Simulated assay, not measured.
Amino acid sequence: MITLRLASERGKANFGWLDSKHSFSFGSYYDPEHMGFSALRVINDDSVTPGAGFATHGHRDMEIISYVLEGSIAHKDSEGNVEVLPAGEFQLMSAGSGISHSEYNASKTESLKFLQIWIQPNTLGNTPGYQQKNFGQAVGLTTIATPTGDKGTLQIKQNATLSQLILAPNSEITYQVTVGRKVYVHQVAGQLSIDEQNLSAGDGAKLTDITTVTLVNPADTQSTALIFDLP
């Protein structure tokens, strides 16, 4: 079964310096029908004005992924990591037993757009950790995060895999789903058709009780999506 989560139906929050859209319940947005999907708890589309950002705050027992779409993030945390994440970069912060961090738009003149993703870990009280990497823009499926961290992927503390899908114009691939697994697709840019169900930027799709789907880019521009393979 394929269940769409349309961008136009997501929760919204605007604080002037931050314009955010929530695929699942977050902050002041609460919808009991959209509390997450399997271990996937948060997908926020965040736009941050120049020089603004999130002051130091704490997290625990959550795998927090940031994917920069435009601009760059200035990151600082209680583990001593001080980094800048440019566009195209993935960051995985394992909050574990507790971590504090700040995230600011690194530019005083350009806007910042990024995805903030939370995945619940399968063990609690882990040692906090930090990983950061650019996986490029290769056409096809690129594995970003895995439970083992094999082949240069980010290591996530959950039986989950995150992949980046880039499809050239008017192309398609067949995607296999392991029996018993759930898949969530978040459309980042362009168009995507999943077994003839159409997604645009910001849309999502929950895939359950499916073993094979055809992913098609029907447009004349490139398509980019994130694919979460979940328990």
Rank of each mutant, 00 (worst) to 15 (best):
I227A: 05
A145W: 09
V68W: 03
L192S: 07
I119A: 02
W118H: 08
Y175K: 02
I194W: 11
E83F: 12
K21C: 09
T161C: 10
V177G: 01
V177L: 06
N14T: 06
A87C: 07
D46V: 05
D46C: 02
L4M: 09
A160V: 12
N134K: 07
S171N: 10
L69D: 00
I210Y: 11
S111G: 15
Q197P: 14
D195I: 09
S25E: 01
L4G: 05
T208F: 05
G16I: 07
L112G: 04
H22T: 07
Y184I: 11
L141P: 09
P147Q: 01
G80A: 10
D19G: 03
T109N: 12
P121S: 07
L162Q: 00
I99P: 00
I43D: 03
A13K: 13
L92I: 10
M1Q: 08
Y184K: 06
V68G: 05
L112H: 05
D220Y: 15
G190R: 01
W118V: 07
H75V: 07
G96N: 02
S100M: 14
L92D: 00
N14Y: 13
D77L: 12
I166G: 04
T212W: 01
W118E: 00
E89M: 15
I173S: 06
A39H: 13
T123H: 15
D31R: 00
N198D: 15
S223C: 12
F228I: 04
H59N: 09
Q132E: 08
T212K: 12
Q91K: 01
Q132D: 01
E110W: 14
E172M: 13
N105Q: 06
G36T: 04
S193F: 12
G96H: 08
T212R: 09
I2S: 01
W118L: 06
T221G: 09
V183K: 02
L226V: 04
Q132R: 13
G51I: 11
D77N: 12
H57S: 02
W118N: 02
A225K: 02
T56C: 10
G96W: 11
G204H: 09
R41Q: 02
D203L: 00
A55Q: 15
D150W: 05
F15S: 08
A74F: 13
Y130I: 07
L165E: 00
M1Y: 04
I227D: 02
A52G: 13
I43H: 04
T3S: 10
R5W: 07
E110Q: 15
D209S: 12
I99K: 08
R10S: 07
L115G: 03
F135C: 04
L192Y: 11
H59S: 01
D46G: 01
H186E: 00
E79W: 10
T211E: 12
Y30S: 10
D229N: 14
H57N: 03
G180D: 02
E196Q: 15
K206Y: 14
E103H: 04
P218N: 03
Y67V: 01
T211D: 08
Q158R: 08
N198I: 15
T224R: 11
L230K: 01
V177F: 07
P218H: 04
T212F: 09
